[in-house]
Design a protein around this nucleic acid. Structure first.
Length: 826
RNA sequence: GGGGAAGUGGCGGAAUGGCAGACGCAGCCGCCUCAAAAGCGGCCGAGGCAACUCAUGUGGGUUCGACUCCCACCUUCCCCA
């Protein structure tokens, strides 16, 4: 949009105030303050290089909240930093030889400038970048504390391997069987990897969700789902002819007499022992079958491909019936889930049924619907609870009773016990990549696995490593790998894996509190001052990954006494909606990205902020349109024109208190000022953040000011104009500041208290009473707000339309909502 | 298959048991102007000359009164299998 007559010069105003705010450190958050603290946090960005208007929406919401809280009298901490390790930098290095550190630094510089250009009120003195040694040193330090506590360990395990990124992925990073980042199909590999024992915290992570009333219900539901706690029983099958047992977990112990096969994972440890008791032919078939599954992902095995299996030739002994049960190796049982083996009950489990049908295994029904005649057996698996049959002494019991009775019986025999299983698995943090935090462990042939001593941290990433996109980059750097053992001084090798970047994002919000501490990642004192995060804002895509890991870390910190108060880091959580353009997600490949630099140039940043907040409620997906933003440009221009007559003269009508309206129009105008203020405050305190409604109130207010422009001498009009910069300051901070200065103020409008709604201004002199007959609106009468029921009824009866609908009928009932509604039931 | 969220004019949306469609976009008419832009004013769910009637995905229910609460269904999106 061109610079037009009647519009203000947003470009110079926005530049002017951004640099002045920064020079004066206007948004610095002191650690000590008499005001109550408020920690407003927006998820830190990955420095990918360019911000678009989708980012602008996210940061504008967070910034509006921070600015509102500041004007409501809080000492607000509103920090920003960079999630700076990770694959894009490394992939850029592989693609065009860029140095990941230089690439990242360049992107940070650009994005920091862009974030500033949005008029955000961050305390930049607390900025952190996770790729800096001063930061990742504490990553390593925290890893070692987890290691000391037995929560970090290395083991061989089948893992998710992304062939494109050449690295392993945590379970949570596999989406629909594909890499969450590059969307390549994930494979399975056996590798020795570092894990964090998040499963130790499974019950607390689950239970504490109940207390997170400031979180969206769906986010909590998804975390519950992910943790996947199920109660059941674990019991053992002995193997015929072998001194070994196979444990199985089940939630359906009531179906135990329906077991017709034992299904085990190809990677189950017992598989190799079976080779000793089965024929050479069977052993060869088992090996070939395991081989064929090796590269198949979990998704392929459990959902995509047809269930396959092979009879091992070996038999297990049923723990209760003592029958011989054939042992099958199957594709659909996973070694990493539960015990890696399940009892096959085709009559009462869909997957087992499908498998049994394919391989002609017997189907034995042991649970029937409560009221079913005994001779009518189902042809489909019956997976509901019911009544037991053909189950020895447990026959005729209900499923629920049988589960308890069978568990007790197995326990008495010493062959099983009730147990709890989780879908959640330990968090795999090893990555075979360069651009991440080196795991601070040394391997010595004499002393084994040795942690790097604290005083030797950080273990620095070696610069100038040539990245080719294959193998483990650090393993090929002798200067890095070759070291001496901290214990015995002998030659030793460093760990070449780096950490999953979710490690640092699980605690970065604590580093903001104490960003320059060189003895600890943060001090308990600072944590006590600032935690917990009062409002966390970020995308819903982090519901499981980042938010679950952060909660795990915080509980660990809490157990250590490093943080006090609640054991949950984020008191309130808000997920902003996506921004689409032309109905599609913005992406470079689609060529539909709306950049913030171009938008700032065309319409100004204040208009961009207003539109981001106005177009939909913030949690909804919104569509960015050039037509839509023109409405906000017009609003800003009208605000400017409304204020212009008051420039260059001392304008502090607000300081004289609430003006007295003389006319109905003045009364309406005064009320509009306070309605807008009330909306802004209500939306902030309720944490709905529906500032779209607040900005609509500002539209109404400005419409009224424009209508009353002929009466500029009115004290009420002067008051409304004085209030405008304060009211819009959190949403359009630049124009607010400029207007405030032109009114003759020498201090920032952003240091002003927000306008407190005054009941006298909000009160109305007269109101419209709706008169209904049998719930249908028949008349509207203008009345005084204090009108009583009898008086209202009398007035209603004077209305012709009301009388015609009463029409001599008997009045049975009257419902009266004072001064709002009268419903006459006949 | 299980769980969650949503469904209101041409469009984005407002209304948290009490006047459905605030506010904005688009559109139409007018004023201003030599003209245009900008600005300002008006109209803007459907039917009807009108009184009025219909209308918040569909069908039920609760209630004096339902966009709002309950039940079922349809559609869309998200998560899990």
């Amino acid at each position: 949009m061109l610079f037009m007559a009647g519009s203000y010069d947003f470009a110079s105003i926005e530049h002017k105030w951004q640099s002045r705010w920064e020079r004066e450190s206007l948004y610095r958050a002191p650690n000590q303050s008499e005001k109550p603290k408020y920690y407003a946090l927006v998820m830190l960005p990955y420095p990918s290089g360019d911000l678009h208007v989708g980012h602008a929406k996210n940061y504008t919401i967070g910034d509006a909240v921070a600015r509102m809280r500041r004007m409501l009298g809080y000492n607000v901490l509103n920090p920003m930093g960079w999630d700076a390790f990770g694959l894009p930098a490394e992939n850029a290095a592989i693609a065009n030889g860029a140095d990941p550190a230089a690439w990242t630094t360049e992107n940070i510089l650009k994005m920091r400038r862009q974030l500033r250009s949005l008029g955000t009120s961050y305390d930049w003195s607390r900025e952190v970048a996770t790729c800096e040694p001063e930061f990742y040193r504490w990553n390593q330090w925290l890893f070692l504390r987890l290691y000391d506590a037995g929560l970090a360990y290395k083991r061989e395990a089948p893992v998710n391997w992304c062939p494109h990124d050449q690295t392993v992925l945590a379970n949570e990073q596999v989406v629909d069987g594909r890499c969450w980042r590059c969307e390549h199909l994930v494979q399975r590999r056996n590798l020795s990897q570092w894990f964090l024992r998040i499963t130790d915290y499974a019950d607390r992570l689950l239970d504490d969700l109940d207390g997170l009333s400031g979180w969206p219900e769906r986010t909590r539901a998804m975390q519950r789902n992910w943790i996947g706690r199920s109660e059941g029983a674990t019991f053992a099958f002995a193997i015929d002819g072998l001194d070994a047992e196979v444990d199985v977990f089940t939630t359906r112990l009531d179906t135990i007499f329906g077991v017709t096969f034992l299904a085990i994972a190809a990677e189950h440890p017992v598989v190799s022992s079976l080779g000793r008791i089965v024929s050479a032919e069977h052993a060869a078939q088992i090996a070939a079958f395991a081989e064929s599954l090796q590269s198949k992902s979990e998704l392929e095995r459990t959902s995509l491909m047809e269930k396959r299996g092979i009879f091992t030739g070996a038999y297990a002994i049923h723990p209760l019936s003592r029958e011989r049960i054939p042992i099958w190796v199957t594709s659909y049982v996973l070694a990493e889930y539960g015990t890696g083996a399940v009892m096959g009950v085709p009559a009462h489990d869909e997957r087992d049924f499908e498998f049994a049908r394919k391989y002609a295994l017997p189907v034995v029904t042991v649970v029937v619907p409560p009221n079913m005649p005994p001779d009518e057996l189902p042809h489909e698996p019956y997976i509901e609870d019911g009544r037991l049959i053909a189950s020895e002494s447990f026959s005729d019991m209900s499923s629920e009773r049988a589960r308890n009775a069978i568990a007790a019986h197995l326990a008495a025999l010493g062959r099983g016990k009730t147990s709890v299983n989780y879908k959640l698995r330990d968090w795999l943090i090893s990555r075979q990549r360069y651009w991440g935090t080196p795991i601070p462990i040394i391997y010595c042939s004499a002393c084994g696995e040795v942690p790097v001593p604290d005083d030797e941290l950080p273990v620095l990433l070696p610069p100038g490593v040539r990245l080719r996109g294959e193998g483990s980059p650090l393993a090929s750097v002798p200067e890095f790998i070759e070291t001496t053992c901290p214990k015995c001084g002998g030659p030793a090798r460093r760990e070449s894996d780096t950490m999953d970047t979710f490690f640092e994002s699980s605690w970065y919000y604590l580093r903001y509190l104490d960003p320059h501490n060189d003895r600890l990642p943060w001090s308990a004192e600072r944590a006590a001052q600032w935690m917990n995060v009062d409002q966390y804002i970020g995308g819903a895509e982090h519901t499981v990954l980042h938010l679950l890991y952060s909660r795990f870390f915080y509980k660990f910190f809490h157990d250590r006494g490093w943080v006090s108060g609640s054991a949950e880091p984020f008191e309130n959580l808000f997920h902003q909606g996506l921004v689409l353009h032309d109905g599609e997600k913005m992406s470079k490949s689609r060529g539909n990205v709306v950049g913030i630099d171009e938008t700032a140039e065309k319409t100004g940043v204040d208009a961009m902020r207003l539109f981001a907040l106005y177009v939909t409620p913030p949690e909804e997906t919104s569509d960015w349109t050039d037509e839509g933003i023109t409405g906000r440009v017009r609003l800003l221009n009208r605000i400017w024109r409304a204020c212009e007559p008051f420039f260059e003269r001392q304008h502090d009508s607000g300081a004289r208190g609430l003006p007295r309206p003389k006319t109905a129009a003045e009364k309406t105008l005064l009320r509009a000022v306070h309605v807008a203020a009330k909306s802004a405050i209500d939306e902030t305190l309720s944490r709905r953040f529906h500032y779209n409604a607040t900005i609509a109130k500002l539209d109404e207010l400005v419409n009224l000011i424009t209508e009353s422009s002929g009466t500029a001498d009115s004290p009420v009009a002067a008051y409304a104009v004085w209030a405008l910069p304060i009211l819009v300051a959190p949403f359009a901070p630049h124009i607010a500041e400029e207007l405030w200065e032109r009114f003759g103020h020498t201090t920032s409008v952003h240091l002003e208290p927000y306008l407190r709604p005054d009941d006298r201004a909000l009160a109305v002199d007269e109101t419209t009473l709706v008169v209904q007959v049998n719930g249908r609106v028949r008349a509207r009468i203008v009345v005084a707000p204090g009108i009583g029921e009898e008086e209202a009824f009398a007035l209603a009866l004077e209305e012709a339309n009301v009388r015609s609908h009463l029409d001599g009928k008997e009045v049975r009932k009257r419902i009266y909502v004072p001064a709002k509604l009268l419903n006459i039931v006949v």
